[in-house]
């Protein structure tokens, strides 16, 4: 763990020291905010998608500041793929669990009291599943395009 920290600090790739430092501070806040948006999706504006985008943005900023390698160590592309699929799967499983009450996507969990965190039945669960999916897939898309882009820019240099 300590080695990674050190490596990150000394890594030559990515942006300037200022950016890196700010990102290191901001990263936690962004993740926290994303998680908040996801978890309170059924009470306030937001939800799985919005929160997921914020979470993904956290990783994307990480990539921008420190370069691809470091970011992939935090969340590898394989890991992103698994997260992506399990998020989607979880969503469908929640829908299928509705069959315990006889209907697809039935809100089978107790609705709880209004304006409390544990309310809304399956909706917070759905939000979490969606957030997993969105985070992972946005990050994966970004990484994929970055890899493509690097490939392309390599080509352009070759031509020149």
């Amino acid at each position: 763990m300590h080695d990674i920290e050190k490596e990150i600090r000394e890594s030559k790739s990515g942006m300037t020291m200022i950016v890196k430092t700010i990102v290191r501070f901001a990263m936690g806040i962004i993740i926290l905010f994303g998680a908040y948006i996801v978890l309170y999706g059924h009470l306030t504006p937001g939800g799985g998608f919005a929160g997921g985008v914020i979470l993904a943005c956290g990783y994307i900023i990480l990539t921008l500041a420190f370069g691809k390698d470091i970011a992939l160590r935090k969340l590898s592309d394989q890991g992103a793929s698994i997260m992506d699929n399990s998020g989607a799967l979880a969503f469908i499983v929640i829908g299928l669990l509705g069959y315990t009450g006889g209907y697809f996507f039935l809100n089978f969990i107790d609705h709880g009291k209004r304006f409390e965190l544990f309310s809304g039945g399956i909706i917070p669960l759905c939000n979490i599943a969606i957030a997993l999916k969105v985070t992972a897939s946005l990050f994966a898309i970004f990484i994929a395009l970055a890899i493509f882009g690097k490939f392309i820019s390599g080509l352009v240099e070759e031509e020149e």
């Binding site: 898309i141 994929a144 395009l145 493509f148 882009g149 490939f151 392309i152």
Partner: peptide, 8 residues
């Protein structure tokens, strides 16, 4: 994605 591959 396809656009990048097309350029490639």
């Amino acid at each position: 994605g396809v656009c990048l591959r097309l350029y490639e």
